[in-house]
């Protein structure tokens, strides 16, 4: 049965979760940013935003994480496994686009062999999403098959129905168990159909035109043209909830060290450079093409899923004003009215 959660009960919701041993994460003001971050109490929760500046991915795939530790003594090495990386937590107030990035990324982190750091965090963390009641011009979830109140990837979905009231829907068994364990926090729904406050996100391009065009246009002037202003900073890849490329490096002292997995990005020149200096993707145009191809062609062929959730963070953060949905609009237009390739 549908439940209600009143804003005034956020406090008891968060304290009950903490009482059950959950770490609590929610959108929180950090100077002029809104960040998903650990909170101690409900008073820290910020809800007056379109989307958090950081994506949800860092709670499952941190910017930097130990994959093993070791001790070195003369020529002997002893390896130690990292412990305690999967902390039981609830992420409260993430957006549906962020939540959907998780089942999308499950595919690559479980391809053939599973990355236990991802998998165990996925098991430990429960996602309570709040549907978007507003959007901005960068949002394009509806163009990639999602919606501002999409449920995939969330364990519980809250939708605002008035300034101080949310309707609660459980999506998964994990979500159901969470709600069950919190009796008293949620209220029963009165009868009648609630008036859900959900943003209207304009559809910007026809996604079904994109892949067929990409299949045919690995070589096309648009790749260079569009990326001429790109400065290769890679910020787009770091804020993206579905960019998952990483580097593995060692950090150590003389006697002990860690092997560390760090976020990396396809927009960096060094990303693909061979030892010899040869670089398969030596220009920014090639690197930009890789980003688009990976998201809208390669990942689709491998895993039957687009590697983009339409959150628009990459475009919001780009210092050169590169806009991924503009790129996709160009592609969709080219697909309908082919221009000159060269």
């Amino acid at each position: 049965m549908e439940k209600r959660l009143y804003k005034k009960d956020f406090g008891s919701f968060i304290t009950s979760l903490q009482g059950l041993g959950y770490k609590t994460v929610a959108p929180k003001k950090d100077n002029n940013l809104i960040m998903l971050d650990e909170i101690q109490g409900a008073d820290e929760i910020s809800l007056d935003h379109v989307i958090t500046n950081n994506s949800i991915k860092e709670f499952f795939f941190p910017k930097t994480e130990k994959v093993l530790s070791y001790r070195m003594e003369k020529n002997k090495v002893e390896i130690e496994e990292p412990e305690g990386f999967a902390v039981k937590a609830v992420i409260f107030g993430s957006r549906p686009c962020d939540a959907f990035s998780l089942p999308v990324m499950d595919k690559v982190f479980n391809w053939d062999c599973s990355d236990k750091f991802w998998v165990q965090r996925r098991e430990a963390i429960t996602i309570v999403t709040i549907a978007c009641d507003k959007c901005d011009s960068y949002c394009f979830c509806t163009s990639v098959g999602l919606a501002p109140d999409a449920k995939q990837g969330s364990d519980v979905l809250l939708t605002k129905i008035s300034d101080d009231e949310y309707v609660v829907e459980t999506v998964t068994e994990k979500g159901e168990n969470l709600i069950k364990g919190l009796e008293g926090v949620f209220s029963d729904s009165p009868s009648g159909v609630p008036d859900r406050q959900v943003a209207t996100v304009e559809k910007k391009f026809a996604i079904d035109k994109v892949k067929p065009w990409l299949d045919e246009n690995f070589v096309h002037k648009v790749w260079t043209e569009f990326s001429l202003k790109c400065i290769g900073c890679g910020a787009c890849t770091f804020v993206c909830p579905t960019c998952h490329c990483f580097d593995i490096v060692d950090e150590c002292t003389m006697t002990k060290g860690d092997r560390v997995k760090n976020w990396d990005g396809c927009q960096f020149k060094m990303f693909t450079m061979h030892t010899s200096g040869h670089n398969p993707r030596s220009t920014q145009g090639e690197r930009w093409r890789q980003r688009i191809m990976h998201k809208f062609k390669y990942y689709v062929e491998k895993f039957d899923s687009i590697l983009c959730v339409g959150c628009g963070r990459c475009s919001r953060v780009c210092p050169a004003d590169m806009n991924i949905s503009e790129m996709l609009e160009i592609i969709a237009t080219e697909a309908s009215q082919p221009g000159n390739k060269d």
Binding site: V108, H244, C245, F246, D247, I248, D264, F271
Partner: peptide, 9 residues
Amino acid sequence: KCGLGKCGR
């Protein structure tokens, strides 16, 4: 970097 189809390069 990974050899396992995950690091993406």
